[in-house]
Amino acid sequence: MDSIMDIRNLNLWYGDHKVLHDISVSLPKNQITALIGPSGCGKSTFLKTLNRMNDLVEGVKITGDVLYNGEDIYDPKLDVTWLRKHIGMVFQKPNPFPMSIYDNIAYGPRVHGITSKVKLDAIVEKSLKDAAIWTEVKDRLNKPALGLSGGQQQRICIARALAVEPDILLMDESTSALDPISTSKIEELALELKKKYTVIMVTHNMQQAVRISDYCAFFLLGDLIEFNKTEDMFSMPKDKRTEDYITGRSG
């Protein structure tokens, strides 16, 4: 297993409240890793430490190491915009900007200095194709993205994240606000994406974890209880608490 992120002894507090306890795990490259666990177990918080979106929370304190390709992302000298360019994120609720579809996708590349119309056109087309929504929107690129359905909006958000050519895509329950058909489209998309990207996703839906993830991390009350290949974890969980959760006896 080639790892792309190595987390060592990660602890996180919101004010006096300790949310993550001594997490150590290596996340594999070009695989889908699912983070599962009951609400409030810290899995979303953990996800947001990986691209430092937790920096935006008032009173957050973090100890331990988070290494991305061996580089400590909490090094004070590290440029956080560089980090977030390489580790993209798709949120729970589809959140396209109130702009045209084209401008949504071109936003990231423009921020990172690409101004050539030819280049932008190519990036927009490629990103929308990679997000499996090109055929649905190619004739309405100048229409507002907010006019699309929820599932389409979420794929626009994925395309927007892909447009800056990240290595890793973090997905924070990105299908929980969608209908089953849109959800299965995003799942297929995730399977397609892992050829080029590493996908780390938080999910509440254990069937989803089984369907698409290669590796699975089970969180409970801020502890990482178990990390294993998904098929192994679901066929023979090593920890009693994991077994209780995936069989529905707890959570």
Binding site: T81, W82, R84, M89, F91, F97, G108, V111, C157, A161
Partner: peptide, 23 residues
């Protein structure tokens, strides 16, 4: 959410305010 999306793409806070929040 708009601002978070922009920051998550690697935009700075200032870029986010002028290119997302203000529009």
């Amino acid at each position: 959410e708009y601002e978070e999306a922009s920051l998550a793409l690697g935009a700075t806070e200032l870029e986010t305010f002028f290119k997302v929040s203000l529009p």
